[in-house]
Amino acid sequence: MCWTIAFNTRIVKMNIKEYIASGILELYVAGSLSEKENEEVHDAIQKYPELMAEVIAIEKAIVLLTAATNQGDSYSFDAIKKKISNEPKVIPMQKPKKNFWTYSGWVAAFILGGVLVYTNFQNKQSTTMVAGEKQQLEEQIDRVKNSLSQTEKLLEIFRDKDIISVPLAGQNASPSSYAKVYWDKKTKNIYLDAKGLPTPPKGKVYQIWSLKVTPLTPTSLGTLDNFSADANKIFTIKNSNNSEAFGITLEPAGGSETPNLEQLYALGAVRS
């Protein structure tokens, strides 16, 4: 985006104070700028906290002034709530996808069976099997057994009625993304099924956030560092927060202190 880069350098050059003094931010809040100017101001205030603070202060002054010209009684939300609660709630649900782990139990059993048949066959072929080879096979069997018990454990988790499931819908940064959090409050673990997220670009990681809404406090639950390597894209993460929502943002490798909402990939509220 050439023009964005050109524009940003322009701001740095012309300096933030001059930008504020120009009066453009006041017109931005009034809504009397062109669509293109709106986008430019939006980009600038995302980039420079000083500009954002200025916009918030201007908006606050206008909110106070306009509120003072209201002569009605205090407005209650109830009337609106009644009207908007009648419509069927649209919860963005993804079509249930047959995930890897749906089948992986069968796959594992099949491999295990195959390995056993193979071992048997080998035994018939030669009763003097080299000790090293035998050990290799045993390790293989062990691995398959492990994978099977892991799959079984996951199935158990997903079927537990005490586990809260929270669908996370795709956001502006990636509308087609989705994810699902299974929250086990007893063990204070969340299981994040992140199969619906694209592979992150080089140098970036997904960071998981637990969110409290009032007052808004994002708490990092960590980053998904081994995203590409993880086969089933299910991550077990510690969460002892009293979460009201979960969000996933794309952050620079190593994660960030606070979420970059411009790069919010998925978000979902815990239904109480």
Binding site: I62, T66, A67, T69, Y75, F77
Partner: peptide, 11 residues
């Protein structure tokens, strides 16, 4: 925002 919005409409 309801009071502000009402204020503008009232004006």
């Amino acid at each position: 925002y309801c009071k502000s919005i009402a204020g503008v409409i009232n004006t």
